[in-house]
């Protein structure tokens, strides 16, 4: 299996935006156009993360998915706001290949199994936001965009998600998110060793070397990148060239 580079686009009200959470959001383009551009650059998959603040904005996400599916020929995952089997059905109907489920899975763990049974495990991604505070000394699961602490242990929860039917784990380190100091290798390695499904590492990428590190030392099957490629710090092509030079198996860019 080749390692994957997955580009994440934050989508709100039909536009790709960038910024820290809900402050100072800056418009950086059309979801379908950007997704296409990243496919050309060599991205192996695209994730649309819905960061809508209202139901009206949310409705426009599926339009973006529909328009993207017309011209995108790599897998597309939709995350953010998936709360039910019906939400999943709608996202897939619109043209998503997978959904990622976060807060709703913690609130109602049977949702993962219901989606897997109906649509297959291959389209169910369990998204886990983890944080290790000084008091905790181990990684806990946080929900609601990383704002609400739960009592769940992140590694145990990852195992449970897989038992319940998740086909992949999208693992985000809240502390590293946006920091560009590198992925949390220890967290990624702990989860990747604990579950039999692919783990997508997220949060902390500041360079192509960080991506290499999480694939090699972290044991991740895939790395999620966002800010560094949107800002041009590096590109999907550069990351893949580095991986290829170091003999890490990647899909080569034409």
């Amino acid at each position: 299996m080749l390692t994957r580079i997955i580009v994440c686009l934050d989508v709100r009200a039909g536009r790709v935006v960038k910024g820290t959470r809900f402050e100072q959001l800056r418009d950086i383009g059309d979801p379908a156009e950007l997704a296409n551009r990243y496919e050309t650059e060599g991205a192996d998959e695209i994730v649309f993360l819905d960061i809508s603040a209202s139901l009206e904005e949310r409705a426009t996400l599926l339009d973006s998915v529909r328009r993207s599916a017309e011209q995108l020929f790599i897998p597309l995952t939709v995350g953010g706001g998936i709360r039910s089997v019906d939400d999943t059905a709608r996202a897939l109907r619109a043209g998503a290949d997978k959904v990622s489920i976060n807060t709703a899975a913690v609130a109602q763990p049977t949702l993962l199994a219901e989606c897997a049974e109906r649509f297959g495990s291959q389209c169910v991604v369990a998204s886990i936001d983890a944080r290790c505070t000084a008091d905790d000394r181990h990684w806990r699961v946080w929900t609601h965009g990383g704002t609400v602490r739960t009592e769940r242990d992140a590694i145990e929860w990852a195992r449970e998600c897989v038992d319940r039917g998740a086909g992949e784990i999208l693992l985000t380190s809240i502390d590293r998110d946006g920091a560009r100091t590198g992925y949390d290798l220890e967290l990624t390695h702990a989860v990747a060793s604990a579950v039999p499904v692919p783990v997508i590492a997220s949060g902390g990428a500041g360079s192509a070397h960080h991506v290499r590190d999480v694939l090699v030392s972290g044991g991740a099957s895939a790395a999620l990148v966002a800010g560094i490629v949107h800002d041009g710090v590096t590109s999907v092509r550069e990351i893949k060239e580095l991986l290829d030079r170091e003999r890490i198996p990647v899909r080569k860019v034409a």
């Binding site: 299996m1 994957r4 039999p196 692919p198």
Partner: peptide, 11 residues
């Protein structure tokens, strides 16, 4: 296999 599903790009 140890890792299932077989998920991603492969030869």
């Amino acid at each position: 296999a140890r890792r299932v599903p077989h998920m991603g790009w492969a030869a």
